[in-house]
Amino acid sequence: MKNTTVLISGASIAGPALAHWLIRYGFTVTVVEKAPALRPGGQAVDFKGETHRTVLTRMGILEDVQKLQTGGTDQRIVDADGRTLAVMPGEFTGGDLEIGRGDLSGLLYERTAPACEYVFGDSITSLTETASGVHVTFERSAPRTFDLVVGADGIHSNVRRLAFGPEADFVRHLGHYYALVELDEDFGPVATMYNEPGRLVAVGGPKAGAFFVFASDRLDYDRYDAGQQKDILARAYAGMGWQVPAIMERVRRAHDVYLDSISQVRIDRYAKGRVVLLGDSAYGNTLGGFGTGLAVVGAYVLAGELAAAAGDHQVAFAEYERQLRGYAKIAKNGNAGPFLAPATPARIRMRNWIFKYRFLLTLMMKMADKFATDIDLKNY
């Protein structure tokens, strides 16, 4: 087998999932991650349908994921006086199997760390392809050469920027931002969400923290500066009713804040030479509900095709793209922003009707199941 040394950028979910399979097939894997350690917490992620379960079973982690699952939690939608308008059922938000993003990331790391080199607190600064490999320079580590490089580093992919071009060429802002904030105290045992036009706040329940979605043009800010992100949230939620003023006081004191755009990746090809994209870097759609499943299935297919082609990256990358291009089509069309934070009172009422009238909800969930299983999964 050729092309046996692989560098993966990104240690969240897609990267370690790919490392899991590549190690099993005899590749030598290095994972580089900009953060100094695994990022705990984050929003819950979910898996839907038989395809996702099949991949988790073949990975040998289905039972571990089931043990860590959070369980879908019903969420009340309330008015400014706290009266319940509708209930978003847990099976809608949590899929068939829901788990904390940090828990899943930790599980995948534990499974791969003994046989894989992880480099935290570092980032790729350049990629230079040669006839026999990719010469890689880093912010901190010494330069190295790898046979293949995989960008599994999210919607703001550094690898995609270095190998394919600037982010603006591939990432489309969809008109909303979202934020996750770990608060210093919870807001009760019941998960509750409140809307005003173009804005959503959700707090409470067993999944601690606060969740925000708000309409906005593209913002210029430092994604690693918590103070700037808190200021943006304060401006976006000024004057809002219900318990929002008290929630925003907690936000100002919070240590863990994550703010990002709801965006969509559109790219004509997943591979360029010896560099290939995986997960959100290739087919991301923020809050689309399919990102984790696409990442795990994509990792399974990419590694399987590399093994089937005995390391021939040209053959493997072409087949990986052929299979995933159709499966990832759900990421082309969805936009969670207007659904979570409708622009007008009338649209808020229409969104709530989905949860009042069960047949509408059932139809949406059947469509989601169809998308989640729309691939002829090979058994490598």
Rank of each mutant, 00 (worst) to 15 (best):
E305H: 14
S126Q: 12
T286S: 15
A316G: 11
K378T: 09
A316S: 09
G15T: 02
G72R: 04
S157T: 10
K272I: 07
E98G: 10
D374A: 14
S105R: 02
I262W: 00
K67M: 11
R160A: 11
Q228A: 11
L324N: 01
Y357T: 13
D220W: 00
V55G: 06
E319M: 05
L278C: 08
E139Q: 14
G326P: 04
D79F: 03
I13P: 06
D225Q: 02
V315K: 14
I262S: 04
A208F: 03
R235C: 02
A179T: 10
L219Q: 13
I354E: 06
P89R: 07
G288A: 07
E321A: 08
L85T: 05
I23D: 13
T93M: 12
T373L: 00
E117Q: 13
T125Y: 02
A142Y: 01
G198C: 07
A11S: 14
G15E: 00
F214M: 04
V296G: 05
P143D: 08
D369A: 15
A215S: 12
G49F: 06
Y178W: 12
G205D: 09
Q243P: 00
D220H: 10
A341E: 10
G42P: 07
A208M: 03
G41S: 04
E167N: 07
A310P: 00
V87M: 01
L108E: 00
S126I: 06
P245N: 08
L162E: 10
L360H: 07
A341S: 12
A19I: 01
D153C: 06
G239I: 04
Y327H: 06
N3L: 01
D81Q: 15
A282N: 08
R325A: 15
G10V: 07
G198T: 04
F214L: 04
Q66R: 15
N352C: 02
G337P: 01
D96S: 10
Y109F: 15
P16N: 09
H52E: 09
V276G: 09
S216W: 08
Q229S: 09
Y118K: 02
A115M: 06
D217M: 00
S141W: 01
A343R: 12
L127E: 09
A113H: 09
T30F: 05
L97V: 07
L38V: 07
R325T: 14
Q66H: 02
G41A: 03
R83N: 15
V6F: 04
G94P: 02
G165V: 04
C116N: 03
R266A: 13
S263I: 02
V203M: 04
H20D: 00
L38W: 02
S261P: 01
A236S: 12
S12N: 08
Y109H: 15
Q323H: 06
